[in-house]
């Protein structure tokens, strides 16, 4: 479980997160939803320590992450994987080198063991025979999948995904969502996903936290989100004709 308590973050005098308290549960896809610019990425980067929080506390199970030094954070960071919005694959490395990079850095595995692990992770995201390609040579959807493969290479307990299906066609987006959901269940990970895509919300939202104006505005899951009478949430959820039709049913 990951728990944020009263987390605040501002840039200059722009308050982006205003005292957010939220729990992310183990074995579930925990979704953070909100409009573009609402602070989802900032919240996620605060959770993983890429941004220092101004106030509050972040806990990983029983460990207080937000007070740790870089070296102390390392222990937890080897237990977490993150999928960045653009994939953030290392351009200078091949697909396989990308996936085994954390293994090379932190384990003493032999080249054969690493290759085996890379192939295993690639098979988990339904890719094969792409080991020697560079990120520039593969499609957007494949990049996302390779990035997921890299994120799970170290068998993480915690998985973070920043808009995993932005910029993808609806079908590929759906494949990626389900992949993340399956991996979460299979490895009992604590998965946190940023999204503004209602499809993902209804597909995989085991737990949903809606961020509005820097505050945690609503919490629920994929079943309760369509029933809510919270006006700001409804404005977000029923922004398109498609979701409005869903409500009428």
């Amino acid at each position: 479980m990951i728990e944020a308590s009263n987390v605040s973050k501002s840039f200059g005098d722009h308050l982006v997160l205003d005292g957010i308290s939220v729990k992310f549960e183990t074995g579930k896809c925990n979704l953070i939803i909100g409009q573009s610019g609402s602070g989802k990425t900032v919240l996620m980067k605060c959770l993983v320590g890429l941004y220092e929080i101004d106030n509050g506390r972040v806990m990983y199970d029983d460990r207080i992450f937000s007070r740790m030094s870089f070296d102390e954070m390392k222990v937890i960071r080897q237990e977490l994987g993150m999928l960045f919005q653009g994939g953030a694959l290392f351009d200078s490395m091949t697909v396989e080198e990308n996936i085994v990079f954390p293994l090379s850095m932190f384990t003493n595995q032999s080249p054969e063991e690493k290759r085996e692990r890379a192939n295993f992770c690639l098979s988990k995201v339904n890719l094969e025979n792409v080991n020697k390609l560079r990120p520039a040579e593969i499609s957007g959807g494949m990049k996302k999948r390779v990035a997921i493969a890299r994120a799970i290479a170290m068998n993480p307990k915690y998985l973070f995904c920043d808009e995993p299906n932005s910029g993808l066609d609806p079908h590929t987006a759906n494949v990626i969502d389900n992949l993340i959901s399956e991996l979460t269940k299979e490895y009992n990970m604590t998965t946190v996903i940023n999204t503004h895509d209602m499809n993902s919300v209804i597909e995989i939202g085991d737990k949903i936290s809606y961020i509005y104006k820097g505050k945690l505005w609503w919490e629920g899951n994929k079943d309760t989100i369509l029933e809510s009478d919270n006006p700001e949430l409804n404005e977000f959820v029923f922004a398109t004709e498609l979701t409005r039709k869903l409500k009428q049913k």
Binding site: L50, F70, K74, R77, Q78, M82, F84, A88, F106
Partner: peptide, 18 residues
């Protein structure tokens, strides 16, 4: 700079690499 704006630097940091 490219690694910074494409979040590759964040990716390194997240892995626990300085």
């Amino acid at each position: 700079g490219t690694m910074r704006v494409t979040e590759q630097i964040d990716a390194l940091e997240i892995m626990g690499i300085n």
